[in-house]
């Protein structure tokens, strides 16, 4: 056995021991934090979202989500800088086979509807902006796999991303008129599609931003010149 293998084995054993000692302290199914109970009790009346995870993500921990968006934006910017401007002047890529083209065409509307559903029902059912946005991005990316020369119009993705991010920040700032930055506006009946005040709008902006960001990133990856 080479020394590198031995070092890797030692590292893995140490990591395993560390993780095991942490896991031994935690009881399965017994969360160590006690914030869950009060949130479960108060969130339906305070925020009005039927999906309590959403009320945590966008209301109680809205700042975390904002920073998360910033992280994603920074990562996408850095990747865009590394990948350079997407010029398609390089070699042209041959279109994919029949199965992929047909499947991409057939799946596109369903993925679009599914992504929109998951985003718009984020305050009612599991899911939301991040998940739905990823599905939207894949919906636009699949046809691109079938037709690599088509490309994604970067002006559109940049515009959508910028305006969605600005809308998210504006709604967050509008909370200053109420209880403070990122404070939600409650409103509507619990469980209705138009409920939970500003949360669905926030999730819509978040989903569009995530979707445009990922689609633009993957489109850039696809059309990048061979170095």
């Amino acid at each position: 056995m080479r020394g590198r293998d031995l070092a890797a084995l030692l590292f893995l054993a140490g990591l395993g021991a560390l993780l095991a000692s942490v896991m031994a302290e935690l009881g399965f199914g017994n969360p160590p934090l006690r914030a869950g109970g009060p949130i479960l009790e108060q969130s339906p009346s305070q925020v009005g979202a039927a999906n309590i995870v959403t009320s945590v993500v966008l209301a109680y921990r809205g700042m975390d989500t904002l920073v998360e968006l910033t992280i994603l934006f920074t990562a996408a910017t850095a990747a865009g800088m590394v990948l350079g401007q997407g010029t398609r002047a390089g070699r042209s890529q041959s279109p994919a086979g029949f199965i992929l083209s047909t499947a991409a065409d057939a799946l596109f509307p369903f993925l679009l509807v599914l992504g929109a559903y998951i985003i718009l029902h984020g305050h009612l059912t599991p899911g939301g902006g991040f998940q739905g946005g990823t599905i939207l991005a894949v919906a636009f990316f699949l046809p691109l796999l079938a037709q690599p020369n088509a490309g994604i119009d970067e002006r559109i993705t940049t515009w959508v991303e910028g305006s969605a991010g600005a809308a998210f920040l504006l709604i967050a700032l509008a909370g200053l008129a109420g209880d403070g930055f990122m404070a939600p506006f409650p409103g509507g009946e619990l469980g209705e599609l138009l409920s939970a005040g500003s949360l669905p709008v926030l999730y819509l902006a978040l989903g569009l931003k995530v979707g445009a960001e990922l689609a633009g990133l993957m489109g850039r990856l696809l059309t990048e010149d061979e170095a």
């Binding site: 999906n51 995870v53 998951i118 599991p126 899911g127 939301g128 991040f130 998940q131 990823t134 599905i135 991005a137 894949v138 990316f141 699949l142 796999l145 990922l214 993957m218 990856l221 696809l222």
Partner: peptide, 20 residues
């Protein structure tokens, strides 16, 4: 919620990215 994110990102996005 986590399951949806895992399915969308882990199965969809990263699979497509790796395959490409």
């Amino acid at each position: 919620d986590v399951a949806l994110a895992e399915a969308a990102v882990g199965t969809g996005l990263s699979g497509v990215l790796l395959a490409y």
